[in-house]
Amino acid sequence: MDASYEEERPVEEERPPPAGAWSQLTAALVAALLGVAGLIGSWRLGLGRLTEPGPGLWPFVISVVITLLSVVLAIIGRQALDSERFNRASLLVVVAVVTLVLLAVAMPLIGFEIPSLLLTFVWLRFLGKESWRSSIVISVVTVVAFHLLFVTALQIPLPRLV
């Protein structure tokens, strides 16, 4: 192990406290459910034979692997320390995702400008705790710059007002 590696390591390892066995179990369960869903879906598509595979054979094989490994993970992986606990700040992520969805819903209806402006503003002012002034200035500048770049320069057919 060389010296530079030694000093880099701590920066990387700086992660919040591990979430424990339940979170590991949840992760394994979700993966297993996905595998089972894949099993059912591909079974319905038809497996065919090995020499004459149907559309479902390949996804079926993968689903079997996912399911089995997820069960193994549930059994032996519970002690792993690589997951993180959710906390109050995780709610910010929910808010952030809501703003993204609203942008996607609104864009085809009212163009990208207003939703983009609001999204940047909310992220700057409420999620980023920037000052009112800089939030307004930066969001306006960003949207204008995007308009110039995507619409004027690159002529991309984004839904838009102007």
């Binding site: 942008l103 996607a104 864009m107 940047t120 700057l124 999620l127 980023g128 920037e130 960003t142 995007f146």
Partner: peptide, 22 residues
């Protein structure tokens, strides 16, 4: 600052991905 970089990156990502298939 990440607080400023994040929304700009998000916007590039969302609008950029739109351009792939419109």
């Amino acid at each position: 600052r990440p607080a400023i970089l994040a929304p700009i990156t998000v916007l590039i990502t969302l609008l950029g991905v739109y351009t792939v298939n419109n």
